[in-house]
Deep mutational scan, measured.
Amino acid sequence: LQLFIKTLTGKTSTVEMEPSDTIENLKAKIQDKEGIPPDQQRLIFAGKQLEDGRTLSDYNIQKESTLHLVL
């Protein structure tokens, strides 16, 4: 599924993920695209901070969801 990652600067990146992927996997993919180390990334979806060990489906993240990346 395609996700949009929006940064505080207003920049939006697109990443392709599976519902079974963990937040950790997602942060690794963001690191590949943006060069931001996972330990500096905080991802927010629906007002919640996402935890590394959980999966996208745990948070009911659907295709074309927008996640907010806070550093």
Results as ranks from 00 to 15, higher is better:
Leu56Arg: 00
Leu69Tyr: 02
Thr9Phe: 13
Lys63Ala: 15
Lys63Gly: 14
Leu50Thr: 02
Gln41Arg: 02
Gln2Thr: 15
Gln62Ala: 10
Lys27Gly: 00
Tyr59Lys: 00
Glu64Leu: 13
Asp39Val: 09
Ser13Cys: 13
Glu64Phe: 15
Pro37Arg: 08
Ile30Ala: 01
Lys29Pro: 00
Asp21Phe: 03
Leu8Thr: 13
Pro19Phe: 09
Asp21His: 05
Arg42Ile: 15
Gly47Asp: 06
Leu50Asp: 00
Ile36Lys: 03
Ile61Phe: 06
Ser20Leu: 09
Leu3Ala: 01
Gln31Thr: 09
Pro19Met: 09
Leu1Gln: 03
Gln2Lys: 15
Glu18Pro: 04
Glu51Trp: 05
Leu26Cys: 01
Ser13Asp: 05
Val70Asn: 05
Glu18Arg: 14
Val70Glu: 10
Asp32Met: 14
Ile36Ala: 04
His68Val: 14
Leu1Glu: 03
Phe45Lys: 02
Gly35Ser: 05
Ser65Tyr: 07
Asn60His: 09
Tyr59Cys: 01
Thr14Lys: 10
Ser13Met: 15
Leu1Trp: 10
Leu69Asn: 00
Gly53Phe: 11
Arg42Val: 14
Lys6Trp: 08
Thr7Ala: 07
Gly10Ala: 03
Lys33Arg: 11
Asn60Pro: 04
Thr14Cys: 08
Thr7Ile: 12
Ser57Gly: 09
Pro37Met: 06
Leu50Phe: 01
Ile44Phe: 15
Glu16Gln: 11
Ser20Pro: 03
Thr66Asp: 03
Met17His: 04
Lys29Leu: 10
Gly10Gln: 03
Glu24Lys: 12
Glu16Thr: 13
Gln40Lys: 12
Leu1Gly: 04
Glu18Trp: 13
Ser13Lys: 07
Phe45Asp: 00
Ile44Cys: 11
Gly47Asn: 06
Ser57Ala: 14
Gln40Trp: 10
Thr22Asn: 04
Thr12Lys: 07
Ala28Cys: 06
Glu18Thr: 10
Thr12Trp: 12
Ile23Ser: 00
Ala46Lys: 14
Glu18His: 14
Leu8Ser: 14
Leu71Cys: 06
Glu34Val: 14
Leu71Arg: 09
Asp39Met: 09
Gln2Ile: 15
Thr22Ile: 04
Thr22Ser: 08
Leu1Phe: 14
Asn25Gly: 08
Met17Gln: 03
Glu18Lys: 14
Lys29Arg: 11
Arg54Thr: 06
Thr55Trp: 04
Lys48Arg: 12
Lys63Phe: 09
Lys33Ala: 12
Ala28Tyr: 12
Leu50Tyr: 00
Asn25Ser: 13
Ile61Glu: 02
Thr22Tyr: 07
Gln40Pro: 02
Leu8Gly: 10
Ile61His: 02
Arg42Cys: 11
Val70Leu: 13
Ile36Met: 04
Gly10His: 05
Asp32Pro: 02
Ile23Gly: 01
Gln49Lys: 09
Lys48Tyr: 09
Leu56Met: 06
Ser13Ile: 15
Gln2Asp: 04
Asp58Pro: 00
Asn25Ile: 12
Ala28Met: 13
Leu50Gln: 00
Gln40Ile: 11
Leu26Ile: 07
Gln41Thr: 05
Thr9Lys: 11
Leu26Gly: 00
Gln49Trp: 14
Ser57Trp: 08
Asp58Ser: 14
Leu3Trp: 02
Ala28Leu: 14
Thr14Met: 14
Leu26His: 00
Pro38Lys: 15
Leu56Ser: 01
Leu67Ile: 15
Gly10Asp: 04
Asp58Glu: 11
Gln2Pro: 08
Glu64Gln: 12
Thr12Phe: 11
Val70Ser: 09
Ile44His: 09
Val70Met: 12
Leu8Val: 12
Lys11His: 13
Pro37Ala: 08
Ser20Glu: 11
Gln40Glu: 10
Lys29Tyr: 08
Gln41Leu: 09
Lys27Ile: 03
Gly47Ile: 02
Pro37Val: 05
Thr66Asn: 04
His68Asn: 08
Ile61Met: 06
Gly47Ala: 03
Ile30Pro: 00
Ile61Trp: 03
Glu34His: 14
Ile61Tyr: 02
Leu26Trp: 00
Gly53Met: 08
Gly53Tyr: 10
Ile36Thr: 06
Glu51Pro: 02
Glu24Leu: 14
Lys6Glu: 07
Lys6Asn: 05
Arg54Gly: 06
Asn60Trp: 05
Phe4Leu: 08
Gly10Met: 03
Leu56Lys: 01
Lys33Glu: 08
Ile23Lys: 01
Pro38Glu: 07
Ile30Gly: 01
Glu34Cys: 14
Leu56His: 00
Asp39Thr: 10
Gln2Ser: 10
Ile61Asn: 02
Asp52Pro: 07
Thr22Trp: 04
Leu1Lys: 04
Leu26Arg: 00
Thr12Cys: 11
Lys29Gln: 06
Lys29Gly: 02
Gln2Met: 14
His68Thr: 14
Lys6Met: 12
Gln2Cys: 08
Leu1Asp: 03
Lys11Gln: 10
Glu16Val: 13
Leu50Val: 04
Leu71Tyr: 10
Gln62Pro: 12
Leu56Ile: 10
Ile36Leu: 06
Thr14Glu: 07
Met17Thr: 05
Gln62Met: 11
Glu16Met: 13
Thr9Glu: 12
Leu50Glu: 00
Asn60Gly: 14
Leu71Thr: 09
Thr55Glu: 03
Gln62Phe: 09
Thr9Val: 07
Ile23Glu: 00
Leu1Cys: 04
Lys11Leu: 10
Leu71Asp: 06
Val70Gly: 05
Lys29Glu: 04
His68Lys: 07
Asn25Thr: 13
Glu51Ser: 07
Lys33Ile: 15
Pro38Tyr: 13
Glu18Gln: 13
Thr66Leu: 10
Thr66Val: 14
Gln41Ala: 05
His68Phe: 15
Thr7Gly: 10
Met17Glu: 00
Asn60Val: 04
Asp21Met: 07
Ile44Ala: 04
Glu64Pro: 05
Lys63Arg: 12
Leu67Met: 05
Leu56Val: 05
Phe45Tyr: 13
Asp58His: 12
Lys63Gln: 14
Leu43His: 00
Gly35Asn: 07
Met17Gly: 05
Gly53Ser: 11
Thr12Val: 14
Gln41Trp: 09
Ile36Val: 09
Pro38Val: 15
Glu24Phe: 14
Ile61Val: 07
Leu71Glu: 07
Thr14Arg: 11
Ala46Phe: 09
Ile5Thr: 01
Asp58Gln: 07
Pro19Tyr: 10
Ile5Lys: 01
Gln31Pro: 01
Ile5Asp: 01
Asp39Ala: 12
Val15Cys: 03
Thr66Trp: 08
Phe45Pro: 00
Gly53Ile: 06
Leu8Gln: 12
Thr55Arg: 12
Lys11Met: 10
Val15Asn: 01
Pro37Trp: 06
Asp52Thr: 06
Leu67Phe: 04
Lys6Arg: 11
Gly10Asn: 05
Thr12Glu: 06
Tyr59Trp: 02
Gln31His: 14
Lys27Leu: 03
Gly10Ile: 03
Lys6Phe: 07
Ala46Gly: 12
Lys27Ala: 01
Glu34Arg: 07
Thr14Trp: 11
Asp52Lys: 04
Leu43Lys: 01
Tyr59Glu: 02
Gln41His: 03
Ile23Leu: 04
Lys27Ser: 01
Thr66Cys: 05
Lys63Trp: 09
Glu64His: 15
Ser20Cys: 07
Leu43Arg: 00
Ile23Phe: 02
Gly53Val: 06
Thr12His: 06
Gly47Trp: 04
Lys48Trp: 07
Lys27Phe: 02
Thr14Gly: 04
Gly53Trp: 13
Ser13Leu: 15
Gly35Cys: 04
Ala46Pro: 00
Gly47Glu: 04
Lys63Pro: 15
Asp39Cys: 10
Glu64Trp: 15
Leu67Asp: 00
Ile36Asn: 02
Leu69Lys: 00
Ile36Glu: 02
Glu34Thr: 15
Ala46Leu: 12
Asp52Phe: 04
Ile30Thr: 01
Thr66Arg: 05
Gly10Pro: 02
Pro19Gln: 08
Leu71Asn: 07
Leu67Gln: 01
Tyr59His: 03
Asp21Trp: 06
